[in-house]
Amino acid sequence: MTNLSDIPVLAERAEPLPGESPVVSAVLNQVMELLAQFLASGTAAALDLKRVPRMDAATYRQLKDALSVGEVTATVKAEVTVEITETQYPGVWWLTHRKEQGAIVTEVIEITDLPVILKSHAVDMRAGLRRLEQALAPPPPRDDTPDRVRR
């Protein structure tokens, strides 16, 4: 065993706090494990909140309060809206996907350094570069020669 990362670590599941929903506790424990996993291996993960069983309104509120809001918020506006908020735990992001009318389509907790939806894609960047080049290209020389001279 030569590296610190070779030492196996078992994350103990914390007991729910008094009054805390066991669902919230389970999600938080899972987030903790996934965050540790990301730091150890770089493997990003996502929890789809729609698939979490028994996520009623009160439990949802408790979970949102428990994760709270961190330093970064961003919004993608592309007909649909995606609200991205880093929670109080860096690397744990809360993404809310809304359809055109504003209703929530799905909500996801992503465990990663930066959610993919925020990153620019090389294909889009190349297209953007071409547009920028066109915008900065010198205008074609104007043909100011009077009609009668050209004749």
Partner: peptide, 30 residues
Amino acid sequence: GGAATFDEATATRLLALGISRRRFMSYCAG
């Protein structure tokens, strides 16, 4: 894993179709 980025072909096709990649990514997340 978490959501991965689109491959080159998919992003190129979306660009050609004039569809915002981020909008489509949100649609696929739903």
